[in-house]
Design a protein around this nucleic acid. Structure first.
Ligand code: FES
Ligand code: FES
Lengths: 149, 149
DNA sequence: TTAATAAAGGATATTTTTATCCTTTATTAT
DNA sequence: ATAATAAAGGATAAAAATATCCTTTATTAA
């Protein structure tokens, strides 16, 4: 559905939102470890997110990434857009040059509802909402192998 | 959603189903032109589809591809599987190592229903059904630029 | 039986995505 | 001021996906 870059981006912003405070910023090392992603690639992605203003960053000792508490909540679609994947849900599932209701491909009608709902989720869900559920232990960012029973 | 290879595969089988008869087989050239895909890449894909038994082929003069009328209808998921993309809808949208209800990622619940629906579509819809709608002019495999009004 | 045809198969090339490395810049603590 | 630290940025490398080319094999028509 998303590229690795976009997956890492979403996971990174989630971790930064959960654990990054202005007085206790998160280093790239810390973030990559938490979301289990390749460090240098994650650094690149954080550069982009920082440039786009979706996360705040400070260089130097005790520097790192955090979320400005007075910034507007960030939606999933903002991250997807920052990673230049805004069109994942606008293009034809069979690769036709356009996805349209008037000249639908053979599976257009079957996938349309799905794509729209998902688009809606990306627009409505903010990182803050998802971070809250993570903090409450309702959702997870890593799979922990726990033995059955 | 799918790779180019898978998109071309589905489109190719659709065209072969619509236009390929045992007495009037379709050449690679013809197929690639119809579905507007790069010819040599399409040839590779047709090799795979033929090897997997999803289309029939004959070499030599008047050879080409066709669908054995007494073969079982082919579902979309059979094609997706032949192209080794069966896991597109089984993996976690955020790239976690597993997609599970017990350790759901932050968007698992939001995407689960749609993944299942789509999986169902791929399993139930056969190429024959889709080819019929194409023949009836209800759906399209190419976008024709028609002037408005 | 030979020549022509068309897919099959193998090897290679290109592009995109993913990942790494190194140098520069900003910030902080000393 | 100086040294240490950490992100930013640029250049490069590796892997995967996409695409092309060439040789072989099967089939058919002449
Ligand atoms: S035209 Fe193919 S998904 Fe809309
Ligand atoms: S765990 Fe992420 S989609 Fe199911």
């Amino acid at each position: 559905m998303f590229t690795k870059a976009c997956e890492y981006a979403i996971r990174a912003v989630l971790i930064i939102t959960m654990k990054g405070k202005e007085e206790q910023k998160l280093s790239i090392q810390h973030i990559a470890k938490e979301i289990d992603s390749p460090l240098p690639f994650t650094a690149k992605i954080l550069q982009t997110l920082s440039r786009e203003g979706l996360v705040a960053s400070v260089k130097g000792p005790n520097g790192g990434f955090y979320i400005d508490p007075k910034a507007k909540p960030v939606s999933l679609s903002q991250i997807v857009k920052a990673m230049e994947e805004e069109n994942v849900l606008n293009t034809c599932a069979l690769g036709l040059k356009e996805c349209s209701d008037t000249q639908p491909c053979p599976i257009h009608h079957q996938v349309k509802a799905y794509k729209q709902k998902l688009k809606h989720v990306l627009q409505e869900k903010t990182i803050q909402m998802l971070a809250k559920e993570l903090n409450e232990g309702k959702t997870f960012l890593r799979i922990s192998k726990k033995r059955k029973k």
